[in-house]
Write a protein that binds this DNA or RNA. Structure first.
Lengths: 190, 190
DNA sequence: CGTCTATTTGAATGTACTCAAAAGCGGTGG
DNA sequence: CCACCGCTTTTGAGTACATTCAAATAGACG
C-alpha cells in the first residue's frame, strides 16, 4: 500500500507521532480501479471517503432527463466522495468513475468517526479540507454566475492543466455546464 | 449581548461546560448594523467570522465590469464571512451589506485560532459547519449547471422562503446569476 | 407629496442548445 | 499491419434561453 502520499497530505495540517500514524494507516483500505470502473454508483450506500493515490476520477450526477453534470474531477492527492450522502448516510446521488487506471485509499465513515474521537487533531485536518473545498466551490459558483463559458473554459485550463490533459473534452464540457458541441465551437475561435 | 442563539447553534454539534461557554463568549463582540451598512468592504482586511443574531445580510462580488454577483444571503443563525480571505488573511474580495437592520456576533481570526487550541472541540463544530457549507455550495453548482433559471428560482423559493420575503428581487436575480429583467419575465409566466 | 429605486414590459441581440451529419481517432480482430 | 467499429470531436442550421437597452409603471421612504 502506497502511504507516503497520504501522510504528506495530512502533515500539511497536523503532525502525528508513530503510534498515531500506525493507527491511522490501519484504517485505510486500498482500492484499485481499471479505466471505467466505478468507485461509487448512484443509489448505493456511500460509506467511504477516498484519497486518490494515482490516476484520475470523475464524480458526476445523472439527472432524470439523462443528462449528466460533472461535479468534480479527482487526481492524485485529492479527496473525493459524495459528501452529502457520506455525511448523512443516505444512498449516493452521484457516480464516481475512473477515467484512467486509478488507485485510491478508502476511509470508512465509522472509522473516520472513531478517528475523530481517538485522535481529535483529525477534526482539524478535515476542517481545513472542508474549508478549502467550500472556498473552491464558492469560487466556482461565482464564475458560473458571472462569466460566459469561454472565460470559464480558459480558467479551467489554467487552474487544472493536468486534468485538462487526462480527461476527454466532453467531460470538461459537462464540468463547465455546457454541451460538448458548444465547447468545440468555443475552442475553434480560440 | 444576545447569546442564547449562538450557544444553541454550537450545541448542535458539541457540548460545552460553564467555563468553556464563558471563555467562548468572552471572545465575541457584538456589531449592530443599520440597513445598508457594510459589515465588510472589498479591499479591506477580513479579520472576523460573523454569526447573525438577527436581520438579513448579503455577500456579493463586484466584478471589473461593474456587475455584481450575490454569493450568499445570511439571516438569523447563519455564519458569514469572506472565507477565502478570512482563511488566508488577504484583503477581502467581496462586500457584505446589511439588507435590513441586523445584529451580528464577531469572532476574530486570532481568537478563533486560540479557541481551536484551547478548546479543540471547536474544530469539530467548524468542521461540520464547513462541511455543510461545502455540501450546499456543491448542490448549488449542480443546479446552476443543469437547470434553467426558472427551475432554480422555484427551488430557491422553496429552500429559502424567509430570505425570499426579506430581500429585494434584484438580489435574488443576482444570486441566481440572471438579470432582474429576466427574473421578472420568469415570474410573469408562473 | 415628491423623489428615488425597484419592477415590469418589449424589441433587438447574443449566447448556448438540439439535432443531424461528417470527420477524426483509438482500440481490436482478422 | 491494416481495416473496421465505436466513440469523440467538429461543423452547421435552426431554435430556445437569457441579455441589453430603453421606457413605463409601481413601491418605498423621507
Amino acid at each position: 500500500m502506497q502511504t507516503d502520499s497520504i501522510l504528506s497530505n495530512i502533515s500539511k495540517h497536523i503532525s502525528l507521532d508513530k503510534a498515531e500514524i500506525k493507527y491511522f494507516l490501519s484504517l485505510l483500505r486500498t482500492r484499485e480501479l481499471k479505466k471505467r470502473d466505478f468507485l461509487l454508483r448512484a443509489e448505493e450506500p456511500c460509506t467511504a471517503i477516498n484519497y486518490v493515490n494515482s490516476g484520475a476520477l470523475r464524480a458526476f450526477y445523472h439527472d432524470q432527463s439523462g443528462k449528466e453534470a460533472t461535479i468534480m474531477f479527482a487526481v492524485a492527492d485529492w479527496w473525493v466522495t459524495d459528501m452529502p450522502c457520506f455525511a448523512n448516510q443516505i444512498p449516493a446521488m452521484i457516480n464516481i468513475e475512473a477515467i484512467t487506471k486509478s488507485s485510491v485509499l478508502q476511509l470508512e465513515k465509522e472509522d473516520i468517526e472513531r478517528l475523530y474521537i481517538k485522535i481529535p487533531k483529525f477534526e482539524r485536518h478535515f476542517r481545513i479540507l472542508m474549508q478549502n473545498a467550500y472556498i473552491r466551490e464558492q469560487l466556482r459558483t461565482l464564475q458560473n454566475l458571472s462569466m460566459p463559458a469561454k472565460a470559464r473554459y480558459k480558467i479551467f485550463l489554467k487552474k487544472y492543466p493536468k486534468i485538462a490533459q487526462q480527461v476527454p473534452q466532453k467531460n470538461i464540457a459537462s464540468y463547465l455546464g455546457i454541451t460538448p458541441e458548444f465547447l468545440s465551437t468555443i475552442r475553434r475561435v480560440k
